[in-house]
Design a protein around this nucleic acid. Structure first.
Lengths: 295, 295
DNA sequence: ACACTTGTTTCATTATTTGAACCATATATT
DNA sequence: AATATATGGTTCAAATAATGAAACAAGTGT
């Protein structure tokens, strides 16, 4: 597509992008200001989105102060988006087993554009625990699972992320591009990532890639309070469980090749093929690849 | 709005509605057939949705068989929709406490159009349990929480639901309109609902309304295997816990009035006002009302 | 009482959407 | 092999649908 057509629906959808964790509703005036569209246009578009169910409207009787917010239809659609990442529940099942064996919070994280999104989350059974909400967005450079995804993103993405503003969420967030490059290389070499307190203090995360016949589709991760991950014996156990689970899922998704999943060249390739990825003969539909928009 | 304008964005969004629990991806031809739009138009619209991130595309190198599926952006937006139902986590916290005290699955269900949607779900800690997925849609006439919502819907909705096809998911699904009317009256009289195996055999559900200053905003429910709910002693305990939790949440949301929440007329109204609902002086934003699209 | 903001409608102008036809390519059928 | 029939993708004149300035109505703050 050339010149990026004007696109009426694009404008409408841009309105959906105005919502945020900290802005759960907007007024027409706010929306018009934020998008630069005239009020009348904004009004009509918002109204159409309400009619379609993507937005809900709360009109204070007659007067001003009518506000628009994300509609329940989006919740339904979001569910379908999550399901299409794991239509057969293979990932989900493995995550629950992993949770039961480790007692930690388990996440399945995928890359979406230049960010990461927590697609599936399985909280531990412990009464007090971290809660990572599904559907939440996170930067690709901070945290084990997200950085692990970054390690296998196209160079263009890596560059954009490393050039973009690198916010230090805590004193332990790595923000030096050179350092991050080294961490990415390490991840590609070992097929594994760990982080301490990069997004939230006193927490830790451990991640391994989930791979299908075509490449990395997401990251499986354990997260919890820092202490357990500092203990070498416990950490080794968690790592073994995590890698085993990630491998199991990957194999079921059609991956054939060495494990841990490492950068081609770091180890001898499996056999005839050039890379570590087999053809994925598995007849099943490549829904996961479709869901993450892999070309 | 008169004559229901044609609406370009409406058509685009209609494409999103083609997805389903059993249809997680579509081709251009399928979409064109399902919507009745010409292929060229369908193609352009789908492509715009992909550009906006609401859809993901998987193009098999060059040839045919490109398929579109719900995009991760929808997952993010869905999260925001869920959050705007409970911006301060009041409901969620109460649900987790209820789960811990009852050991059952806890749901917060809201009405959306002529259906119900599971907005929040908190699974029990037991290794084997029912799992009701968030974002799932359910009919309003079957099941305790959904029927409880129906009990306080406008008459127009009730009529549409009762006239519409009433599918019997199990032999215990109530499908007689007269019987359903009686059940609804009972719910309005007692402020409480229970069901046995109406959607899935050998399961039961128990529900109570969540009310704010303006009216019923959702249903809080317990669900699990039938046995516990058949035992009178256990069932009484569960009911007490559920009603207490629903009342607590309702009070925090600004409800003032008698409890259980019953139809005006069944009991004496609180005081000066006509109905059971107070003005909800609570300064907090009425985000919940906004989220469910209450006028 | 005044100025200001907000939601909503109108309407002539304009530009975007439209959709039949067409192309290229891959699979199924003969 | 050759043909037929799908598919995804593109083109272009016609016309439809989006546009936005202005005006209206109704509320709020000063």
């Amino acid at each position: 597509m050339r010149g990026e057509g004007p696109g009426t629906v694009g404008k409408a959808i841009a309105l959906l992008g105005l919502f945020d964790e900290s802005r759960l509703s907007i007024s027409i005036a706010e929306a018009a200001l934020a998008t630069g569209m005239p009020r009348a246009t904004t009004y009509r578009l918002l109204e159409q989105l309400v009619a379609a169910g993507l937005l809900t409207k709360r009109g204070v009787d007659g007067g001003r102060a009518t506000r628009y917010g994300p509609g329940l239809r989006l919740l339904e659609l979001g569910r379908l988006a999550a399901r299409s990442l794991d239509p057969d529940g293979v990932i989900r099942e493995a995550m629950e087993r992993l949770r039961d064996r480790c007692g930690e919070s388990v996440q399945f994280v995928v890359a979406s554009g230049d960010a990461a999104i927590y697609a599936h989350v399985v909280p531990p059974r412990a009464p007090i625990h971290l809660y990572v909400g599904w559907g939440r967005r996170a930067p690709l450079y901070a945290g084990a699972s997200t950085r692990l995804l970054l390690a296998w993103q196209p160079e263009a993405v890596v560059r954009r992320v490393l050039e973009g503003p690198l916010v230090a969420y805590t004193p332990h967030t790595p923000t030096d591009p050179g350092h991050l490059r080294a961490l990415l290389a390490e991840i590609r070499r070992t097929g594994y990532a760990i982080s301490f307190g990069e997004l939230v203090e006193h927490t830790a995360e451990m991640a391994a890639p989930v791979v299908d016949g075509q490449g990395v589709v997401g990251a499986l991760s354990l997260a919890g309070f820092e202490e357990r991950y500092r203990d070498p014996a416990i950490a080794a156990g968690l790592k073994a469980e995590l890698l085993a689970a990630a491998e199991e899922v990957s194999r079921r998704l059609g991956y054939r090749g060495p494990w841990p999943y490492v950068e081609p060249g770091s180890v001898a390739p499996p056999e005839g093929r050039g890379g570590p990825a087999g053809a994925g003969e598995e007849g099943g539909s490549d829904a996961l690849g479709a869901a993450i928009g892999r070309p």
